[in-house]
Amino acid sequence: MSDILKRGKYTLEFKEESIRQVLAGASIGSVASSLGIPKGSLGNWVRQHQRGQLGGQSPVSATPVSADQMEISRLRAEVAQLRMERDIGKKSRGVLCAGHAAKYAWIQKMKGRWPIRTMCRVLSVSESGFYGWQRSGKAPSSRVSDQRILVHIRAIHREVEKEYGWPRMYHELRGHGLRVGKERVRLIMQAYGIRGKTKRRYVVTTDSEHALPVAPNLVQRQFTASAPDQIWCGDITYIPTEEGWLYLAAVIDLFGRQVVGWSLKPHMQTELVKDALMMASLRRRPAAGLIFHSDRGSQYCSHEFQETLRALQIRASMSRKGDCWDNSPIESFWARLKLACLEGQKFRSHRQATATIMNWISFYNHRRLHSSLGYISPMEYEKRWHASQYKIAA
């Protein structure tokens, strides 16, 4: 991407990805900063897009933006968003444990500095509650009608691609500031035929028929960690598209089930899993001694990948041959991803599949509620852990 930026040449695909982030709700300033492009240029592209006049170099005459480069761009935007949420958390310490009215008053005071939506999410209050407080000068009534609950349920149901059943829906509604009981949520969803999707089984892609060295199983199905970046697990899955197979390698931190690295390519060679590992390493900077657990696939057993682990001072661990239960956390992750992204979906191109998968991974890390984490997201779980360590140190 650096060569493209130095020459000032932006492909149409790069412009469209930048515009998509703005249309998704990010500010022009934050997107421009995260992608390293002039704010004025991005503003012009958005206006041209709205007028249907967006032009650009063809992929033949310009250097194309690869899927990995798009991932890096999205990662920069994600870091900018995390920094903003961190700053909001620091500034709002005085009202974090206060009631809704105090939080609404703080948001009112700071609304010129940060987006209202982001502040509401960090403070665990709803946007609708804040605007209701603005109009009336007090927090809304605690009693919520069935119809209002139904509106929220249907909106969340669409947002999560029909993935949530009533237990997660209940916790999501509570996170929106709605005081409602579990049984009430279950009955409303049942009455209106709103159901969560059920998991399917998918074909295994592991090639363990090779003569390469195999690492011992250091995890032994103990899929818990006391702190971030102690145990990672990795695997490969495939995505069908009309352009051919697209392969996804992911790395998950077992502490909070956060996806810390990933790579998408039209092949499943060693480069695929190595790039996912390098992304995780660059993002997290783990201490020496981290365990990386995988199956016995030829990509993970390859000399190139094992040399990379040794260079990063990471210990290799591998499951038993043909035993998916030895790497069940990432198998569960694949089931959730394919349930959300592939069920009833046909991708016309690798690019369309890449955009959909990257959006879902961002949703998974930042928003999706995990029952094993107490119905909060991986990012929120880790953020609370760091906050508790800060209090202990203080």
Rank of each mutant, 00 (worst) to 15 (best):
G89N: 12
I194L: 13
R367E: 12
G25Q: 05
M110L: 07
V219S: 01
A393E: 08
I252H: 02
G234K: 01
L150V: 04
A335S: 11
T206F: 00
H176P: 00
G344V: 12
H303P: 11
R367K: 14
G181S: 14
D207M: 01
D68V: 00
G344W: 08
I330Y: 03
Y170K: 11
M169Y: 13
H366S: 12
E16R: 15
R257M: 02
S362M: 02
L272T: 05
K338E: 07
K383N: 12
T198G: 15
A394F: 00
L5C: 00
S388R: 11
A340E: 12
V259Q: 01
Q230A: 09
I330D: 00
S328A: 15
V122I: 12
Q81T: 11
R93N: 13
S281F: 11
K162A: 15
V214E: 06
S281I: 10
Q69T: 09
P167I: 11
A288V: 00
A316E: 05
V185Y: 13
L54H: 10
V144R: 04
Q57F: 15
T356Y: 04
Y300V: 05
E243A: 10
A288C: 05
R384P: 01
I4D: 07
I291L: 06
P140R: 04
G43W: 02
A280E: 03
P38N: 00
N327T: 04
D146A: 12
P59H: 14
A105Q: 12
Q108F: 05
S319G: 12
K39D: 05
A98L: 14
L277M: 10
M279D: 05
T354C: 14
S126C: 11
Q190T: 08
L309F: 07
A98T: 09
S136M: 13
L42R: 01
E243T: 10
